[in-house]
Every structure is written in C-alpha cells, then in structure tokens.
Nucleic acid binder design. Structure first.
Lengths: 254, 254
DNA sequence: TATTCCGATAGTGAC
DNA sequence: GTCACTATCGGAATGAG
C-alpha cells in the first residue's frame, strides 16, 4: 500500500484471504474481509469489506449510494451481514483493548457517504481519533460521531424501518448535504469544546483519552477490590458470592 | 537588523551617519540617509530616509500620507530633496551596475502607500525583482511598476502640478484603493505574461533578466566596435572621430 | 470523502 | 504594506501488465 491505489479495497474484497498480506488482513467470513486501515485515525481502526454474493455483484458494492439503489431487501441483507461481521470485529478490538491498555472504550461502526476509495467499506474504529495519521480537519470531521458525516451503521439500518419516502430521501446520499460538514469547526466529540487548529485539538483529545484511561483503570481497580472483598466474604458463608455478582451486573461503578 | 524593528528607519533618520553600521549605510546628505534594504527585492535596493528638518519634525515624516497632510510647499520641498538625493543614489547604482554586470538597466524610485515600517522611506531599486528575498505575491506586486501600488516619486511630484482637488484626492492615500492591488495575479512587469506561482514567475523574471543582459552586452560590444572603427578612421583624417561621437549621442544602438 | 507534495493563504508574535 | 513561524487551504499527481 505504498502508493494510493483507489481500487485496493475492491481487490481485497475479491481476494482469497491467503492472498492478502498477513499484516493487513484482520479477519474474514464468507461475507466479508476485514483489513487494518493503512492510515488509522484511531488506536483501533479496521475496514470491513463486503464480498459480492449472488444475486448482487461487485458493481452493486461500489459505495453506499450504489448499494442503496439495489433491491431494498438485498441491500438490507448486505448491511445486516456487515453488522454481524462488525460485531465480531468489535469483539476482537475489545479483547485487544484489554490486553494492550487494560480497559475497554467505545467503538464506532459506520460509513462515509462520499468515499474516495472504491468499494463499499465499513469503518470500525475506537472512539479516540488521536493518532499520527489524524492530520487534517477533513479526517477528524469525517469520523466525528455527532456531525452527521459519519453514518453509523445502526442509523443506516434504521432507514429501512422508516417510511418509503424517508428511505428514498436518505438513500440518495446527495453530496451537497454532506460535503460542507467536513469544513465545520473542530469540536471535541466528548466535551464539545472548539479548537482552532488540529495540533490543539489533538493535544486536547490526548488529554481526554488520558483522563478516560485513568478513570477506567480506577473503576476496574475498584471493581476488582469489590470482587476480592466479596470472595473473602464468601469464605465465611456460602451465598455471599452470588449476591455480589448480581449487584455488579445491575449497577456498575460510576 | 536581525529582528524586525518597526522603528529602525526612524532611528536611522535620526542618527549621525557614523552611528549606522557601515554595511547598512550607503550614502547620506544633510537631507537624508540612504541604507541598504535588509531584504532586497531587486539586485540593487536602497532606502532613502528623509531627516526631520525645520519647520517639519519627525512626526510629520511618519509616512507619505502624514507628510502630505503638512503644508503643501513644505511637503513638496521634502519630496524635491528626496528626489535630488535619489538621483545621486541612482548614479551610484548605475556605476555599480557597470562594474558588477557590465551594463546598466532601469532603476525605479518610489513609495509604498501603506508601509508597515515606520518613517517615510523612498525605495530606489533596479528593475529586476528577482532575488532570494522576493518570496510572496505581496512582495512582487508592491514593486510592480504598472500596478498602481508602487507610487513612483515622479508621479507623486506631478500631483503638486495638478488642481487642488486632484491633489487633495491623491494625498488622502485611502487604504482601500491600494490594498487589493497586492492580491492581483502575478504579471511579468516586462511582457505582461501571467504566472500562477511565485517560483514560476521568478524563473521567468530570471530569464527576462538573462535575455536583457545578453542583449545589453551585445549592444555595448557593437558600440565598442563602432568606436574602434571610428578611431581607426580617425587615424586617416582628423575630423572622423568627432562625427562618430556625435552620431552615438543622437541615436544609440537599437 | 485515499495520501503526498508543492505552494498560496492566514494569523501570530516579535520587542 | 517588516519577517519568520505555524498551520490551513487548494490543486495536481499518484501506480503501471
């Protein structure tokens, strides 16, 4: 991936997994191939690429707009399969979050309405947006979860539950309503503070992440301590352990 | 002059010449101090700084607009003295042109209507505009001889010959009529060709200068040859030399 | 909304 | 219209059987 090959995603979607470099391929199913984003915009950033399965072919999977021009049920089926595969990818990410950082945080799953690279691709990425590849306003705004450019898969699926006219309006994905959003001010997706430059935003995002990491680790330490205490109590009587576990499930710390 | 001191020119105008670094001071009179521009925009680029002479004081010499608010005859006198001193500076430049490059070319003398550095300063610079310090559009357009931002001293002096209402209009030097001119397209001051970038313009200006240098040197070689031939002829008869000299004065080569 | 390279553009700070 | 620094913005090229 040393040169910008705009058809690389399609190539991957048509390849057998063994033909994809091991450093690139994350996982795969009969429906999709998941690869590491070459320029990750978050600490975890993967791309889920649907395969062309009958009756659809590769030309129906050019991008989201193209897919949504297909038969409604066929399009929905593609999205549901992507949803299932993304769920598995999120499970992988969460396991790596715990092993690498000791805690888990939010993961977003969604599309860009006006992609540059060919072939429909679903982004699955952790909610941090602070990496070396995160360089310009367009990068950041294209993943901001509340700006409206990043189309959460859940939202796209909800279009299928709405009225036909609403579905028709949404599936048009007219560029004009989206492209201006990338030029919006740089607003922190966590606290809504506005920043004038990317370096200042990124410094802030790093602080937000550091604070979150500290908080989450403290939370886990507390939880572990509670569990140890419960285990100690369980040593006295036999029903103490069951009660502690129930409490933890119903009202987690914080 | 290692840091941009906005009052440096005023400081020089108030200094005795011996207090000005030798590498900076070019020449001086009772009326003015001439210094080398620290960021020359042409191969020769000097700054003539009027001294405050009674009845005017330093506050009357803040910039051209301030001077033109003064008594009309007093202002005219300042400009006429600058004109005379600039004439001497041009003579120095022409001598250096010949010694350094073997030929002479045009020299411009004028003001900027919206200067950033304090104290009225007259630019005297050779017509080439292609040096390392010539970096951005604003630099170039501010010296373009036909754009209207660079105010030739001759033109300013002509305002004094016009009607009082014309003089009043011109001397206001309202910023709005000048500031937009610096954003005009990059047009070669010799051939009017337009360039999209400074590197491309500068490459062209260098070619223009190289062509001119070649042309002027050929012209001088021709002239010298003619003079030699005339001298040879003069060896035959006594009045040949006088005739050749007269011809040269009246219709120079080209 | 692929990146990278080049260059123009805009804001700031200098003391 | 002082410069130098930082960062943004804007276009064009990009690979190659």
């Amino acid at each position: 991936m040393s040169f910008p090959n705009l058809t690389l995603f399609r190539h991957y979607a048509e390849s057998v997994p063994s033909a994809i470099p091991k450093t690139v391929l994350k996982t795969h199913t009969d429906n999709s191939v998941t690869v590491a984003d070459a320029y990750p915009k978050s600490l975890f950033h993967f791309i889920v690429l649907p395969r062309a399965l009958p009756p659809l072919d590769i030309s129906n999977l050019k991008d989201l707009r193209t897919l949504l021009k297909c038969d409604r049920e066929q399009a929905l089926q593609v999205l549901k399969r992507l949803d299932a595969d993304a769920e598995a990818v999120r499970a992988i990410i969460e396991a790596e979050m715990v092993s690498k950082y000791g805690f888990k945080w939010e993961i977003w799953t969604g599309f860009h309405p006006l992609p540059s690279m060919e072939h429909l691709h679903l982004h699955v990425l952790s909610a941090d947006l602070c990496t070396p590849a995160m360089k310009i306003k367009k990068h950041y705004n294209s993943f901001h979860p509340k700006l409206g450019f990043f189309l959460h898969l859940e939202e796209v699926l909800s279009w299928f539950e709405a009225t036909p006219s609403f579905y028709d309006m949404k599936r048009a994905l007219t560029p004009r309503q989206y492209e201006d959003r990338l030029k919006e001010d740089l607003m922190c997706f966590k606290c809504d503070d506005v920043f004038k430059t990317m370096p200042k935003l990124k410094e802030h995002l790093q602080q937000e992440w550091d604070r979150m990491a500290k908080r989450e680790k403290a939370k886990l330490a507390k939880k572990r301590k509670r569990e140890e205490e419960a285990a100690a109590k369980a040593g006295d009587g036999d029903d103490g352990n069951v009660k502690a576990k129930k409490c933890e499930t119903e009202s987690p710390a914080e």
